Amino acid sequence: MNLPASIAGAPFLADPAFQRVIAAVEQDGDRARVVGGAVRNTLIGVPVDDVDIATTAPPETVAARVTAAGLKAVPTGIAHGTITVVSSGRPFEVTTLRADLETDGRHAVVAFTRDWVGDARRRDFTMNAIYADADGGLHDPVGGIADALAGHVRFIGDPVERIEEDYLRILRFFRFHAGYGRGALDAVGLDASVRLQDGIDRLSRERIGAEMRKLVTAAGAVVALTVMDETSILARILPGGGAVGRFSRVVGLAERCERTLGLEARLAALAVERQRLAEALRLSGRENKLIEAIARWAEEIAARMDETTVRFAVVREGNEVAFAALILAAVHRGEEPTMDLIRLAWDFKPPRSPVTAARLMVEGYVPGPLLGAELRRREAAWIAAGCPVDPFGGD
């Protein structure tokens, strides 16, 4: 197999904002190379979101050079060698080559080096340790190019050593397979992840939640979550484990409907003990509110499976919640929703409700419980009637 030696022509390499950062950093014999996701994604034809840069220059030197070049330097992780450089309004993380002096399974004490191979060997997976010069020339010290092209998520060196440096790498192993892997999970990496899973209990819920958000929304989430469930790893993360079978059916049904489910819908499908989900993954208030709304309306729709209930969900919560609730309800009932219900949940844009407090007060109602009850009654009748457009155009 002939492996590519360059990613010349990659759009991000021609970006003037990127080129200004490289020009500022590469002075007095120091080198700067792109590393990680931008290189990996370019090789496999996946869009590039962030461009991370590794350099031989110490972080204080990076900050001084980019500032002198008129760019903004933000010391986002200076203790670990990272300066975020803002060029033309876009952030680029520039990190000095590192070697680990101490690790405790969560954090590392590092020393800065000029050793590119040593920097590569301390990273997690081979596909994340491919470097590219500013002209696109590739440097592959740990065999990452072949693994990236093959969809093989493989730890660098001994998986046990890599995991014991940071137990979050267990979750990253499953998350990267869900996003970039093909076929079965790497057997050696899986064995190490299963044997060392106790280390997950040492991680903060914030770090766990960040990884799980990315995992459940990845294209291969079902495969990764199934293995996590079978090996008891998922039970360490989610209260009660995960309803992976339901998750798989919900995702599959949405795909057959040619629609995409968001994070909250996927978590609502996966959660066994929904009431404890927010704490387990440190969900935001908005995320938790959406999950609760999806679950509540799924119960309502499952009880009736009719247009009126779906329309109620759209009016009260919006199309995203209504569609997710419809899919969950259909899976619960073991039936496919009709195309009319799918289109209603996804596409219906209700007009402004003609039922207002001001109109009821003109009729003689006064603010209070009776007015509120009448508002709810009339709005329900309006929704049941199909949300007709107000012939009087509002208040």
Rank of each mutant, 00 (worst) to 15 (best):
45 G>K: 12
161 E>H: 12
191 D>G: 10
215 L>I: 00
357 A>T: 01
75 P>F: 12
96 T>G: 13
193 S>R: 02
46 V>M: 13
345 A>M: 00
78 I>H: 10
240 G>F: 03
326 L>N: 02
231 T>G: 10
15 D>P: 04
155 F>R: 12
94 V>Q: 09
381 A>T: 00
248 S>H: 15
44 I>Q: 10
250 V>Q: 00
306 D>N: 13
116 W>V: 10
178 A>F: 00
356 T>S: 13
142 V>W: 09
350 P>S: 10
132 A>G: 10
72 K>W: 07
343 R>A: 13
294 I>F: 03
40 R>V: 01
279 E>G: 13
110 V>C: 07
148 A>V: 00
153 V>N: 02
29 G>T: 00
74 V>G: 05
42 T>H: 03
366 V>T: 14
369 P>F: 09
222 V>I: 14
23 A>W: 07
99 A>W: 07
125 F>D: 09
341 L>E: 14
120 A>L: 05
233 I>Y: 08
15 D>E: 13
354 P>I: 00
38 A>H: 02
71 L>R: 06
182 R>N: 08
373 A>L: 11
287 E>Q: 14
92 F>L: 14
198 D>C: 05
190 L>A: 05
254 A>R: 05
272 V>I: 11
350 P>L: 11
41 N>W: 01
67 T>L: 06
97 L>H: 06
140 D>R: 03
356 T>V: 00
355 V>R: 01
363 E>G: 07
63 A>Y: 04
289 K>R: 15
133 D>L: 14
114 R>H: 14
375 L>F: 01
324 A>R: 02
86 V>R: 05
385 A>R: 02
346 W>E: 13
65 R>I: 05
321 V>C: 10
89 G>I: 00
38 A>F: 01
65 R>G: 10
324 A>C: 02
20 R>H: 06
3 L>P: 01
42 T>F: 05
62 V>T: 04
2 N>L: 11
27 Q>C: 09
287 E>I: 01
135 D>E: 12
306 D>P: 03
381 A>G: 06
361 M>C: 12
318 G>D: 09
156 I>D: 13
202 R>P: 09
251 V>F: 10
94 V>S: 12
344 L>S: 01
65 R>V: 04
173 F>W: 03
118 G>V: 01
5 A>E: 15
358 A>L: 09
172 R>L: 15
355 V>S: 05
348 F>Q: 08
356 T>G: 02
115 D>V: 00
384 A>P: 04
57 A>M: 08
359 R>Q: 00
324 A>E: 06
378 R>F: 06
80 H>W: 12
191 D>N: 10
211 E>N: 14
167 Y>A: 11
306 D>E: 09
373 A>M: 10
309 T>E: 14
389 V>T: 15
321 V>M: 08
219 A>C: 05
18 F>K: 04
116 W>K: 03
15 D>R: 05
348 F>D: 11
51 V>P: 08
59 P>I: 09
146 A>S: 08
253 L>Q: 15
338 T>G: 14
10 A>K: 00
74 V>I: 15
